[in-house]
Amino acid sequence: MKSIILKTASTYLLPLLLLFAVFILLRGHYNPGGGFVGGLIASIAFVLHAFAHGLVETKKMLRFVPSACIPVGLAISLISGFVPMAIGRPFMSGEWLSVQVPIIGSIGTPLFFDIGVFLVVIGITLTILFTISDGIL
């Protein structure tokens, strides 16, 4: 499957797809999208890269083990749940800053929660796929 066209295409597609994934993640609160879909799209980007260049290349390019995303994402989600408690609100109640940002809207704890979900989904999907395809690609 290591055709030159695919290789070249995936090199350019990877950053584009990742950008798209982040875009989907951030717009999730107002339009279709969100952490789950964003994470899945990002993983598809990496899988595509692995198809074109081989798993070893992808892993080298990633520079970190994908499973490391899982605890990081879980921690972000959990912390975003605990932040409201610091100002005396119940666990996981939403809190927002008053600043308005284009695309994202207002920045608040649910956004960070979604980012945590995003990271966890990337970590999980890549861990599963890379583990299973170890030695094939």
Binding site: F36, V121, I124, T125, I128, T131, I132
Partner: peptide, 17 residues
Amino acid sequence: ILTAIVISFGLQSFAIV
């Protein structure tokens, strides 16, 4: 359903392995 779709992906991959 969104939750279920993602969970069933986890289930399927575990089942395959």
